[in-house]
Amino acid sequence: MGNWFFILLLHFQPYYPAVTDSIVTITAPEIAVYAGANAKINVFFTVRRGYHIQSNKVNDEFIIPTTLEIDTQEIITAGKPSFPSAKKFKLAGTADYLFVYDGSIKVTIPIKAKEKTKKGKYPLNGKLRYQACDSRTCFSPKIIDFIIFVTIR
């Protein structure tokens, strides 16, 4: 149900075209905010069927967590991204679990537009870092660059 909601939502919002590598597709709808006001940036990413990526919280310091960063370019301040709950993936033959994402995921970043920012549309650079596995392979960590447009009213 959640996945269909995201797809429907995307059809009613202007957005920067989806960015994809072979495993993850990212869509970041444009947002508008008044100078000095709070808002939320939503970033949607979809993990290709048959793959999973490590969650943002990992239980081993060497496992690569999924992270999302925004270059605020001094027009906004950004809070900590909020990730959804992860699924447990049991490592067969062990008592160990991984915490992973698959399917469609929404990450929310609280922002505040700086007081004296001039009106206009600003492209902010974003980076998603992740490490994926499918049933046969674990892929080296990857970074996807994407853009979020923020309009200051």
Binding site: G93, T94, D134, R136, T137
Partner: peptide
């Protein structure tokens, strides 16, 4: 990237006798 997480046995003559690529669905830790 292909061999990552795989296991091999090489025999005394340098020949491959066992080569198990990763299979996460039946992982043999």
């Amino acid at each position: 990237e292909v061999p990552i997480a795989s296991n091999l046995i090489i025999d005394k003559d340098g020949k491959i006798r066992f080569y198990s690529l990763l299979n996460t669905e039946s992982f043999d830790a």
